[in-house]
């Protein structure tokens, strides 16, 4: 564990609390992509199956359980409690275009051709693109509530902080590098660049998040 990863994880944690706060206070999940949230549940379940056979630390296990539980809870809120505020007609990204390639990539690139290792790879690849339905929705509506942009920013910061974490680990752990995680992580962080540009130049200057027409 190093500071970059800890801050990254805390940022991830914060993003979930921001999302829950947004849904509870506005009593609405407007602007949130159900598809992205469903992909996150898939990611967490596929990756954290290792709770059953790999113990890293109490911190690690508690975080994993929290990420699974909170992501399922968010789906519940969207699908049941605040269902009328969820508009599937603008959440139109075709997730089969993400799932298919991720399945294929995980079958080719994995550290061992076993069920758990392929699922681990799959979760890494899927996480890297899981935000796309959300960004697509943003692009489509052209605007977002400020709180929703804070949620996305916290998620982006989490991913961005994993990059210095890997550099730090490479230096301090004698050249250790995880090619699958690093490649997917760079792609994932890259997807946030456009968003961050608008976030920093508009939202943090007190303006509304609006994309040019």
């Amino acid at each position: 564990m190093n500071l970059f990863r800890l801050l990254g994880d805390l940022s991830h944690l914060a993003s979930i609390f921001i999302l829950l706060h947004k849904i509870q206070t506005t009593r609405s999940c407007r602007g949130i992509s159900f598809k992205t949230q469903a992909l996150y549940v898939t990611v967490f379940v596929a990756r954290y199956l290792d709770l059953f056979y790999r113990y890293v630390s109490l911190y690690n296990s508690v975080m994993k359980l929290f990420f699974i539980a909170s992501s399922v809870y968010i789906l519940y809120l969207m699908k049941y409690k605040y269902r009328p505020t969820n508009d599937p007609s603008i959440d139109t990204f075709r997730i089969e275009y993400l799932l298919g390639p991720c399945v294929l990539l995980s079958l080719i690139f994995n550290y061992k051709f076993s069920v758990t290792e392929v699922l681990w790879s799959f979760s890494i690849f899927l996480e890297s693109v899981a935000i796309l339905p959300q960004l697509f929705m943003l692009q489509r509506t052209g605007e977002a509530e400020t709180i929703t942009t804070h949620y996305l920013a916290a998620l982006g910061v989490y991913r961005a902080l994993y990059i210095p974490n890997w550099i730090y680990r490479y230096i301090t752990e004698d050249g250790v590098v995880d090619p699958i995680a690093v490649t997917a992580g760079l792609v994932q962080t890259g997807l946030y660049i456009d968003f961050f540009y608008v976030y920093f130049t508009k939202v943090l200057q007190g303006q509304k998040f609006e994309l040019p027409a």
């Binding site: 990420f67 550290y111 995680a181």
Partner: peptide, 10 residues
């Protein structure tokens, strides 16, 4: 040690 150093990450 399991393959892939990121296995101990979240």
């Amino acid at each position: 040690q399991s393959p892939g150093s990121a296995h101990d990450e979240l």
